[in-house]
């Protein structure tokens, strides 16, 4: 028996497992615009063992594993479908001081991803939240795919079709650059003045807060010729605030709450759209009462449709078209 194999097998002679190594692995995660992505969970495992280290990327998009023995490891993004991330390349790391010995734990097991809908999330929002493509979402009770245009009804249990969690091999001393492929959500708002004319070519400032109250950097822009403001939102955006035409008589500060609308055929969907377009339903929600019927009648009158007060197919279609959703 050679001395090296003795030292490997005999715990009394083997190197202390807690001793820090000099090896480092750095994973940098970037989005579609190659900007660093923070908070992405990354797992690193030894070549064949079931032990792993987990961390999340910092504000520079960096997940650093240090104090490793030199050699080959495997890594993956946790809870992200393999189709939604890819390795762009690798670069050698500059020499650095050895870090503290890591605490290895059990590798995470794939867990079934599911979500009970509140009725206000679109399929794109649900997919982005669960880290998968919308086509991978199914209704848990029927096993059928969900319709992309309609937000699932409140209480619907949505599941993700199982996918394999693929690992990528990595060597110590290298920085891996990973592209997390995003599912962008667009916010389009048409800003109008008191006389219903578009606020064309006017400056605006948009502030956005995520669902955990994190405030994102404010964005400035200019509305287009039709008074439109368009911005890409992260999936976890919960509310926003737009200031338009500052310092002028018609300055407005508008509070936005981001949520998907219910279908036009549902009473709530009908009322939410009518309200957004300026046809008040007098506070009625969930049931079509006399005030909603009156709002429908005014809407039909404004569009030149026969004013029946009934939300028939033609009225719902016109409402969806005018509301652009």
């Amino acid at each position: 028996m050679s001395p090296s194999s003795t030292s490997r097998q005999d715990p009394a002679v083997a190197p202390c497992p807690l001793r820090a190594g000099k090896g480092q692995v750095e994973v940098v995660v970037v989005d579609d615009r190659e900007a660093p992505l923070s908070g992405v969970a990354v797992e690193l495992a030894r070549g064949t063992a079931d032990e792993a280290l987990r961390t999340r990327t910092d504000e520079h998009g960096v997940a650093l594993f240090e104090g490793l023995e030199e050699g080959r490891y495997r890594f993956r993004l946790l809870d992200v479908e393999p189709a939604l991330w890819r390795v762009l390349g690798r670069l050698p790391l500059p020499p650095r001081a050895a870090g503290a010995a890591p605490r290895w734990g059990a590798a995470s097991q794939p867990r079934p991803l599911s979500w009970t809908c509140e009725g206000t999330e679109s399929l794109a929002v649900l997919a982005a939240r669960l880290g998968v493509r919308p086509s991978r979402l199914i209704d848990a009770s029927t096993g059928q795919p969900l319709t992309p245009e309609v937000a699932p009804a409140p209480g619907t249990r949505v599941e993700v079709r199982p996918f394999s969690h693929e690992w990528t091999t990595v060597e110590t001393g290298f920085r891996q650059v990973v592209h997390r492929i995003g599912l962008p959500l667009s916010l389009v708002v048409v800003l109008r003045d008191g006389t219903h004319h578009p606020r064309a070519h006017q400056p605006y400032l948009l502030k956005v807060w995520l669902d955990d109250e994190e405030e994102l950097p404010a964005r400035e822009g200019m509305t287009d010729a039709e008074g439109r403001m368009a911005q890409v939102l992260p999936a976890r955006a919960a509310r926003g605030e737009v200031t338009v035409s500052p310092g002028r008589d018609d300055e407005r500060k508008v509070t936005l709450r981001f949520a998907a609308l219910r279908a036009t055929s549902a009473p709530e969907g009908l009322q939410e759209r009518l309200e957004n377009l300026g046809f008040s339903c007098g506070g009625e929600r969930g049931q079509v009462g006399p005030k909603t019927r009156l709002a429908v009648e005014w809407f039909q009158y404004a569009l030149g449709l026969p004013p029946s007060g009934e939300a028939d197919e033609a009225t719902c279609a016109a409402l969806g078209l005018l509301h652009r959703s």
């Binding site: 280290l53 987990r54 961390t55 999340r56």
Partner: peptide, 9 residues
Amino acid sequence: DASVSDPVA
């Protein structure tokens, strides 16, 4: 957050 294995981190 169990996605980060080290509590100090």
